[in-house]
């Protein structure tokens, strides 16, 4: 891969099993700064587990993950500090229901980065404006639509100034008419140079925004390529079959 640019994630021989069930088997890859890696694959293939391993929400059962040069799978490593630099967006948003939108966004910067309230709120408002939700600053999550919640979840992560953003099926829980607004925010983010790793079923989005598409099946990366090649000339028979079903 692009060896000249900075490597954010260096994944070496990553394994994960739940009891007898092997979900990830010896996965090795690198994710460099500025890349938008889109992970596709059938359900149950391990793609979400792979993504969640990157910030150690799933603890690997084997192998190493270097983030910005440090082995975050080392028990001595302070994972909380590294997670501040790894934003994550979930399928089901997971906004904090007992806090307003603004409080959702300023909690972590104030408590973890020791920002002042004004500083944190100024940054939050700026991000809210970027996604067109500044008038929702004092609303509670329950008063928002799914698409709005997901846009807030994205900017909540951005408030921590992460070096990379992980997206775990960010549009899968949304009504169809709300998918676009979330994908737009993500496209903007990609255009702004954010490094992103995205698990999604939105093939159109993958083709348009991704810089590299990764096909994970049965715990292995079966194929990875540029979007153009990936969709035009798939090699792996499983990928061919998968694409014929989803395209």
């Amino acid at each position: 891969m692009q060896d000249n640019s900075m490597v954010l994630f260096d994944i070496q021989d990553l394994c994960k099993s739940f009891g007898e069930l092997k979900v990830l088997e010896h996965i090795s890859t690198r994710i460099c700064q500025g890349e938008v890696v889109v992970i596709v694959g059938p359900s149950g293939s391990g793609k979400s587990t792979f993504l969640r391993s990157l910030n150690l929400l799933e603890e690997p059962t084997g192998g190493k993950i270097l983030f910005e040069g440090r082995d975050i799978t080392d028990p001595k490593c302070d994972i909380n500090r590294h997670r501040q630099k790894i934003g994550m967006v979930f399928q089901h948003f997971h906004l904090f229901p007992h806090k307003t939108i603004l409080e959702n966004m300023t909690l972590a910067p104030m408590k973890l980065l020791k920002k002042s309230k004004q500083e944190a709120e100024a940054k939050a408002m700026q991000l809210l404006e970027r996604v067109g939700l500044e008038e929702k600053a004092n609303a509670y999550p329950s008063q928002l639509s799914g698409g709005q919640k997901q846009r807030i979840a994205i900017v909540r992560s951005l408030c921590m100034d992460p070096d990379v953003m992980l997206f775990d099926e960010p549009t899968s829980a949304l009504d169809p008419e709300m998918v676009g607004e979330v994908l737009n925010v993500m496209s903007d983010l990609a255009r702004g140079g954010m490094t992103m790793v995205i698990v999604t079923h939105e093939m159109g989005f993958a083709k348009e925004v991704g810089t590299r598409i990764m096909f994970i099946d049965e715990g292995h990366i079966k194929e990875e390529n540029t979007p153009k090649e990936f969709f035009a000339n798939p090699v792996n028979p499983r990928l061919k079959e998968f694409l014929s079903k989803v395209l």
Partner: peptide
């Protein structure tokens, strides 16, 4: 998911409990 959201922002287990889980 509330727990994971807290941890993914960089909060420790104790901080997640304190700021996010126990108030709810």
């Amino acid at each position: 998911g509330q727990f994971e959201a807290g941890r993914s922002l960089g909060f420790s287990y104790a901080q997640t409990m304190l700021y996010i889980i126990t108030p709810q």
